[in-house]
């Protein structure tokens, strides 16, 4: 376990460096520059702007400077939102996405695990067929179809929940009604995956000899499921949780757009489309760090769950 984790830890800076380099040059190599879009700009003004943001230096210098900034966690100024630094924008927007993502993840875990476990231990029951059918729909119907449909039904038709928007209650946390539809939309495909994985894991495990041993001891089904079967069944789910974070992040681009939530995903799309390079880079790096961190966390949890790995 220790050695394994060490190996993963060594990979972290490499992953981040690859990501930063890739996105940095992808942005720099693009034709045009951030200020070329603004038509009526004076050549002298443009030059001044380029100088101000260090865009007149050769790329390698720019790259090194950017890395230096990163080392002090400074992501630089935004090119398009005057007077704001990328750090400030991220600090403002990311918590909103975090609230949404976290809610969705909790929801997805609760839904997915419950459905998956019950389907697994009641294979071929109506519940199993029903929930696996729903899970398949969850996998096949894109978020951007589900979102508008939910908004249409619960927002417009029934009027129970707001169609869109984000009225804050405290800090990044909104009044719950603004969170319900977006969180459900975001959670759905994720819950579907978890349910399928859990069910498969459960099926796998309940056919294991050691579960038969547990029955032969006279334990009740609930104990067998929770104490003996759950851990093994959870392993595939846990490995999925790392990539799932990436999925939830990408999902939130769309969901934030549909429900007009002022989060970092929406901000990313906007900044990519209007070439706010530093902001784009900053967001990509943030996402990368999150992904890496979650993958590591998942590894730790995995080892924690499976003693064979922990002591290997």
């Amino acid at each position: 376990m220790g050695r394994y984790l060490f190996k993963r830890l060594v990979q972290v800076p490499i992953v981040l460096l690859v990501l930063i380099t890739l996105s940095f040059f992808m942005v720099r190599l693009a034709p045009g520059n951030p200020f070329s879009g603004e038509k009526k700009m004076d050549e002298s003004v443009r030059q001044a702007l380029n100088a101000k943001y260090g865009l007149d230096a050769p790329w390698p210098i720019q790259y090194l400077k950017y890395l230096k900034g990163l080392a002090t966690l400074d992501l630089g100024p935004s090119y398009k939102q005057k007077g704001l630094t990328v750090n400030e924008i991220i600090a403002e927007k990311a918590p909103v996405s975090a609230v949404l993502g976290l809610t969705a993840m909790i929801l997805a875990l609760a839904l997915g695990l419950t459905a998956g476990i019950i389907s697994g231990i009641r294979q071929n029951s109506n519940f199993d067929y029903g929930s696996m059918g729903v899970a398949m729909i969850g996998l096949s119907v894109p978020t951007f179809v589900v979102g508008p449909l939910l908004a249409l039904v619960f927002g417009l038709k029934l009027g129970w929940l707001p169609v869109a928007g984000y009225e804050r209650m405290a800090g990044p946390i909104p009044y719950p009604q603004y969170l319900i539809l977006p969180a459900i939309t975001l959670a759905l495909p994720f819950a579907a995956r978890i349910a399928r994985l859990t069910r498969a894991g459960m099926l796998d495990v309940i056919n294991q000899d050691y579960i038969r041993t547990a029955w032969a001891k006279g334990l009740r089904e609930r104990v067998i499921v929770l104490r003996h079967a759950m851990r093994g069944a959870m392993l595939p789910v846990v490995s999925f949780l790392g990539p799932a974070v990436a999925q939830i992040l990408t999902g939130s681009l769309v969901v934030e757009q549909i429900f007009q939530i002022p989060g970092i995903g929406y901000e990313f799309v906007k900044s990519a489309l209007n070439r706010d390079y530093t902001l784009v880079l900053g967001t990509v790096i943030l996402f990368g760090v999150l992904l890496v961190a979650f993958n590591l966390l998942v590894d730790v949890i995995y080892g924690f769950l499976d003693p064979r790995i922990r002591y290997a």
Binding site: A216, G218, L219, R220
Partner: peptide, 23 residues
């Protein structure tokens, strides 16, 4: 359930797989 394990106990063929690896 009272009989299982209490009055009548059972052991199986493959000791490699019959014990729960997680506990």
């Amino acid at each position: 359930r009272k009989v299982r394990g209490g009055k009548i106990a059972m052991i199986f063929q493959d000791p490699m797989t019959c014990l729960n690896p997680f506990l």
